[in-house]
């Protein structure tokens, strides 16, 4: 039961990954890609880590640390990339 749930969470994470990464190949603007990428990458990775946590609860400090750093860093990185690339988008 727990095993099935953890596999389910990981597969949900994979679906998120593909859903967010596939728009990267198109010719959309940087900000559009950044939005779909940061949302889906963070959510997908977090659901994957939750799946791993259910699989091996013994390593919880490590996985919780990964969860927190993922949430914080990816959000900050999204902001920094958007801020840095914004001036370029002006003249498009």
């Amino acid at each position: 039961m727990i095993d099935g749930l953890s596999y389910g969470l990981m597969i949900v994470g994979l679906i998120f990954w593909f859903w967010g990464t596939l728009p990267l190949v198109g010719d959309r603007s940087v900000l559009f890609k950044l939005h779909s990428l940061s949302v889906s990458d963070t959510l997908g990775s977090m659901s994957m880590i939750a799946g791993l946590l259910l699989k091996i609860p013994r390593e919880w400090p490590l996985l919780i640390l990964a969860l927190i750093s993922l949430a914080i860093w990816n959000t900050v990185l999204g902001y920094v990339l958007a801020y840095c690339s914004y001036r370029d988008e002006d003249d498009d």
Partner: peptide, 10 residues
């Protein structure tokens, strides 16, 4: 360059 940076982040 920023599209490449996005790919790098991913």
């Amino acid at each position: 360059i920023w599209q490449k940076m996005l790919a790098f982040a991913s």
